[in-house]
Design a binder for these strands. Structure first.
Lengths: 156, 156
DNA sequence: TATATGTAGATGCAATTGCATTTATCGTCA
DNA sequence: TGACGATAAATGCAATTGCATCTACATATA
């Protein structure tokens, strides 16, 4: 094992510090982004995430189970979130031709508009909280380290 | 303004990527740590955070409003969490001599024991998710970048 | 075809969260 | 002292989440 590569039960102080800061920063950022949206009278971040995925899918729409794969929401959470989005007219549910159990979710014009207005606020938060605080080079470094955390190399 | 330092409303693609990965990693990690605790029949992460703060405070204990300062929990959240911790015998509430409105929260022996058992599981998650995936040098880099995100230099 | 097993999505119910407000005490100042 | 605004903490109520289960349809197997 390489020096500095720990794989034991007990975390090193270095790992604990990195974890603590990751937790702290992400919670603060989420809170601040949520506050900014609330302030603007817009729906919460979760709505943006889902609208984003559905919008990306385009005309073909998305099946709810695909949303579950792409996001970190639980099945019942997606089910109810979609119900709320539909009630607000932001998405529409269409029957699926070859699977009677399922449905296809498609974003509506109103949904696109809401997403656009949310992005104006959300994007500003990202710019202020992240874009304005690190250089491109630093952003690239942190992005790559965060990616390594999510996708560890097999020999680690 | 320095090259690479963006401060406009619209975030750069680099900032968006860093944000997205930060959100994704932190959510996944929280979820995995929560799952590990649940698996072990232990209380959720929030309990650990609070028990940790109270334990750190030692014999003197902590006032609820100090917990609010140290953590990111809302006032009503702390109030109810402490009620649950007290109901479980993990903390005790003591009246404050010179402030009739307040109380002092102190951890009990059972609380310390619960915290210890939670750490065995939580610490292992940290070691696996963070400690085993980056070298000390990399941990130091990401820690410092996360810290910069939380505490931007004034001239940024 | 009948039966069993699997998958998609919804839902009843309990627990938790969020919001707004309330209660009690403090500190200040006329 | 007495009135008044500020602070500490709790709480009623609505919304959301988590868990377990349920319904409906699909696919595999005999």
């Amino acid at each position: 094992m390489l020096v500095g590569m720990m794989n034991k039960a007990a975390p090193s102080p270095e790992a604990i510090q990195a974890w603590a800061r990751l937790m702290r920063v992400s919670r603060e950022f989420v809170e601040q982004a949520e506050d900014a949206l609330k302030e603007a009278g817009l729906p919460p971040l979760a709505w943006y995430d889902v609208l984003h995925e559905i919008a990306e899918a385009g005309e073909g729409g998305l099946r709810p189970f695909q949303l579950i794969e792409r996001t970190l929401f639980a099945q019942y959470n997606i089910s109810r979130l979609l119900a709320r989005l539909e009630a607000d007219g932001l998405v529409e549910k269409l029957p699926v031709a070859d699977d009677g159990r399922g449905q296809t979710i498609r974003i509506t014009a109103k949904g696109r508009e809401t997403r656009r207005r949310m992005w104006a606020v959300y994007g500003r938060s990202i710019a202020e909280l992240v874009g304005a605080r690190l250089s491109f080079a630093e952003l690239s470094v942190i992005s790559s380290l965060l990616d390594r955390l999510r996708h560890p190399r097999v020999d680690d």
